[in-house]
């Protein structure tokens, strides 16, 4: 059988998978490792539902061959909460009503996470740029943008207290 072995970390845990080389990171996350928070929308780079973090940067799992994850740290939506404690972005999305059907939400939150890591107090324009690759058919984006701004402010406060 034609298989590749790939080692990477997923949400902080080491993983080793042995799969056909054509397998995408999205298929590995959802079908081999059973984490279904990461969604498949279009499968060709246009909707952002499959967004995950690769070493902290937002990438599309549907266009990533599994071998390209070798040695890297992958974060999915399941990796954000610390135990029962939700990430500030998750809390802000709930409080602002930035979720309706929820299909875009994991990808949206991870794009926002990558943004806040580099830029804790983004402008509205910067938020729009960061999530321009994440389509939402429900919310109209306004509440999403508000939630990201709120989470940015809250993370800054938490950091100031630490």
């Amino acid at each position: 059988m034609n298989l590749v072995e790939v080692e990477f970390t997923l949400n902080g845990e080491r993983q080793k998978v042995i799969v056909p080389p054509r397998t995408t990171l999205l298929e590995v996350i959802r079908e081999h490792l059973g984490l279904t928070g990461t969604k498949k929308g279009c499968g060709k780079g246009e909707c952002g539902a499959c967004t995950v973090l690769l070493d902290g940067e937002a990438v599309l799992a549907c266009l990533t061959l599994i071998s390209q994850a070798e040695g890297h740290a992958v974060t999915t939506i399941e990796g954000l909460a610390k135990g029962e404690q939700l990430d500030p972005l998750q809390e802000a999305f709930i409080e602002e009503g930035a979720i309706q059907c929820g299909y875009c939400t994991p990808g949206m939150i991870l794009s926002a996470k990558a943004l806040l890591r580099k830029n804790p107090s983004p402008t509205q324009e910067e938020i729009k740029t960061a999530i321009a690759g994440n389509l939402c058919r429900c919310t109209g984006y306004v509440k999403i943008i508000k939630a990201v701004q709120k989470a940015g402010r809250r993370s800054a406060e938490v950091a100031a207290h630490d």
């Binding site: 054509r22 266009l63 061959l65």
Partner: peptide, 27 residues
Amino acid sequence: PVAGGTDLLVKLEDGRIRPSQVMDLSA
């Protein structure tokens, strides 16, 4: 060869190209 994969994976997915070998340049 595959670099970022943003063009190649789309072509692989819809069957426009069917290479017998792919070279991952990411390392």
